[in-house]
Write a protein that binds this DNA or RNA. Structure first.
Lengths: 212, 212
DNA sequence: TAGATTGTTAATCGATTAACAATC
DNA sequence: TAGATTGTTAATCGATTAACAATC
């Protein structure tokens, strides 16, 4: 809402994490500077496109030199909001939910998982990776009291719409949804869907094209 | 390889599963015909785009009538290769691997999970949802003997490159990769990456844009 | 300074939308 | 037949690539 400078397109945003990833790789190898054409070799995007993308946010490079790897990654950190901590909960403490609770890389991105919610009385009250599993009946109360920003949805399809509506109702800001449903959310809620099925069908299409 | 008719762009392919999903929804409600503009209302794509997309593969509609829902879904089934069965294994029987083994919707897409591979001797020899967990040492042998087409990679990042190279070596056709790595594969192998981290960073970006 | 590489403008390419004749 | 809606061509829009002057 705040700085709607010039609305950067989603195709650009989608490439930023990729630049970030490759920069991390080369930084780990001790590389201090990188040119757009070196980044092009790594990522497969053209040097021109890389420069265009970055210049949506500012001139991070230097003529005749290229980009400082650490500095550029830091800029992308900021653009992507990785310097911010989001209080996060997982709704659905089944296998997928606990797989995600366990996935350390998310913490590095600033998503701090505070609780899991589930309806199964056998696991409510336990912990998964030292994260408490709480009854889903207490979800709204918890979210409001603990200033939760983001919810990750890993409940079965049939519960997902209801859960998401309840989350919106109690003021959640962002939703990372793994349930294979389509739902529209108000403008003040950000939703990002992981569509495993769609991805698998894409794989199926290219398999068929390649081998049948 | 076979019918490289006119190479349909990936942006089109990505929408097909979405059409498929909405068609299934309306078919379940008993709807027998649908116009491109009705599909537009459901999916958010323009009617024009929907007609363009479908006409990449043939004229499935009828002037003055629209599309028969069941027939159109069947056509999309075929285009996406959903009528074909792919023998599939999961490499990595941790939480994510078993979450996926457990996820029924994949079976409906024709991916039949035959085995899980893992290096942990405590689980090798057991079953997860009646799917055997086999030592990863026997992976190549199994894949070749049982004509496995597709491997799903859910091993930790540090093992992923090695596992994928071994799979390519022994003739796998498709890879559905959950490990956060970048790897290039030969032309005769199809790889589809699930980049959970990238998706989360996209969420982070829009959260920041909306609220900071 | 000379060489390198950015930032940025202009040209191209591809994807989306609009329009409408064909036809059920 | 008249109305509706497709299939398809043409127009527009946006994203990518090319080119190069600016400058470190």
């Amino acid at each position: 809402m705040s700085n709607k400078t010039n609305r950067v397109s989603e195709t650009v945003i989608r490439r930023l994490p990729i630049y970030h990833r490759y920069l991390t790789d080369v930084i780990e190898k001790g590389v201090e500077r990188i040119s757009s054409s070196e980044l092009s070799n790594l990522t497969g995007f053209t040097a021109s496109q890389i420069r265009q993308d970055l210049n949506n946010f500012g001139g991070f490079g230097q003529q005749g030199y290229g980009y400082n790897t650490i500095d550029l990654r830091e800029q992308i950190d900021k653009i992507l909001g990785m310097d911010h901590v989001y209080n996060t909960v997982i709704v659905g403490a089944g296998r997928l939910g606990s797989a995600i609770a366990n996935y350390n890389e998310f913490k590095e991105n600033g998503f701090k998982i505070q609780a899991l919610f589930d309806s199964n009385p056998e696991i409510v009250g336990t912990e998964i990776d030292s994260i408490p599993v709480i009854s889903v009946d207490k979800m709204e109360e918890y979210i409001q009291n603990k200033n939760i920003d983001v919810a990750i949805i890993t409940v079965p399809r049939e519960y997902a719409v209801d859960v998401i509506n309840r989350l919106i109702e109690c003021g959640i800001k962002g939703i990372w949804n793994f349930a294979p449903i389509d739902i529209s959310v108000p403008d003040n809620v950000v939703i990002e869907n992981i569509r495993l099925n769609d991805s698998l069908l894409k794989l199926s299409y290219y398999l068929k094209e390649n081998f049948l």
